[in-house]
C-alpha cells in the first residue's frame, strides 16, 4: 500500500511540474533558464514512479512464487521505510500547488523587501551589473522598468533623462511614503527563483491614483521628469495614461 502511494506521489509530482511548465505558470516560480531542467525532472520523476511500480509488481509476484525459500529478499524495496507522515509531507507541494491558484509575487510580498527606485543608495542598489547588455536599448519606449533603473543608476544627474518618453508595464504599489498623486509601477527581478526576487519600480505621477487597485497590473505611458520623492530628487515617470492590463506571461524581469 505504501509502495503504491509512493508511486502515485512520484508520478503526481512529475505531472505537476509538467503541467506548470506547459501552462506557462512555471515562470511564476523560477527563472526560465531552469525550464529544460524542470522538464527533465518531470520526466525523471515519472520514470522513477514507473520503475517503482514495475519493481513492485515483480516483487509481489516473486513473493508469491517463493514464499518459503526467499524470506530475506521480500522487503528489499521497503528498505527506506518512510512513515505515513513522511508520505503526507511528500504530497504537500502538489496539494498546495493544486489548491492555491498560481500567482506571481505581488505587492504583499513587496512589503517585506527593499524596493529599488534607482538612485537612493540607502535602498538595495545596483541589481544590474556593470557592462550588462541592458545598456543598449536605444529606443526609450521599449525600455522596461529594469532598463530605466539601470540607466538612472549610471547617471549621477537626476535630470539627465528629462523629457524622454517611457512606456512600461508593472503592478501598482503604494505605501506611506507616496503622495496622493503618486504610485509606483513595480516588477520583481529574479536571478534564480522567487526566493531571491527583488522588487524594483518607477515612481509615477498620476492624478487619479484613487481609482487604481493595489497589486493590479497596469500599463503606464508618459515622460520622465526629475521630481522630488520623499525628500530626494530623482527621475519620475509623469504619466499621461495609466490603463489596466493582463498579468504578463513573464511577470518577472531577468538580469
Amino acid at each position: 500500500m505504501k509502495q503504491t502511494v509512493k508511486v502515485i506521489l512520484l508520478i503526481a509530482l512529475g505531472i505537476f511540474l509538467l503541467s506548470r511548465l506547459l501552462n506557462g505558470t512555471l515562470s511564476y516560480y523560477i527563472h526560465p533558464r531552469f525550464n529544460v531542467l524542470t522538464l527533465l525532472t518531470a520526466v525523471g520523476l515519472t520514470a522513477l514512479g514507473l520503475v517503482y511500480a514495475i519493481q513492485q509488481r515483480k516483487q509481489a509476484a516473486h513473493n508469491r512464487a517463493h514464499e518459503h525459500d526467499h524470506d530475506h529478499a521480500h522487503e528489499h524495496i521497503h528498505s527506506h521505510d518512510v512513515s505515513w507522515a513522511g508520505l503526507l509531507l511528500l504530497a504537500i507541494p502538489v496539494v498546495l500547488g493544486l489548491l492555491v491558484e498560481p500567482r506571481p509575487l505581488g505587492a504583499s510580498a513587496l512589503q517585506n523587501r527593499e524596493i529599488n527606485i534607482g538612485n537612493d543608495v540607502s535602498l538595495v542598489s545596483a541589481n544590474a551589473p556593470e557592462g550588462s547588455e541592458l545598456s543598449v536599448i536605444a529606443n526609450a519606449g521599449e525600455r522596461n522598468i529594469l532598463d530605466w533603473l539601470y540607466l538612472f543608476q549610471r547617471s549621477a544627474e537626476p535630470t539627465a533623462f528629462d523629457g524622454e518618453e517611457a512606456h512600461v508595464v508593472g503592478f501598482v504599489y503604494q505605501d506611506d511614503r507616496f503622495a496622493d498623486t503618486q504610485f509606483m509601477v513595480s516588477r520583481f527581478t529574479v536571478s534564480c527563483c522567487v526566493a531571491d526576487a527583488a522588487p524594483i519600480g518607477l515612481i509615477v505621477e498620476w492624478p487619479d491614483t484613487a481609482v487604481l487597485t493595489p497589486d493590479s497590473w497596469v500599463e503606464v505611458t508618459g515622460t520622465i521628469q526629475a521630481r522630488t520623492f520623499n525628500g530626494v530628487q530623482m527621475p519620475v515617470l509623469v504619466a499621461n495614461s495609466v490603463s489596466p492590463t493582463e498579468t504578463p506571461s513573464q511577470p518577472y524581469l531577468y538580469q
Binding site: L13, L17, R20, L26, Y28, Y29, I30, F34, L37, T38, L40, T41, P93, L96, G97, L98, L99, V100, E101, P102, R103, P104, L105, G106, S108, A109, C192, C193, V194, A195, D215
Partner: peptide
C-alpha cells in the same frame, strides 16, 4: 482555482516562494 485568490495575500506569497525554492531544488 479551488481557493479564492483573495483569501490571504500572505499565504499566497508563502505558497509562491515555497514552490519557487522547491521547484528550483528538486532537479
Amino acid at each position: 482555482n479551488l481557493i479564492p485568490s483573495g483569501l490571504n495575500e500572505k499565504f499566497q506569497t508563502f505558497v509562491t516562494i515555497f514552490l519557487g525554492i522547491f521547484i528550483e531544488a528538486v532537479p
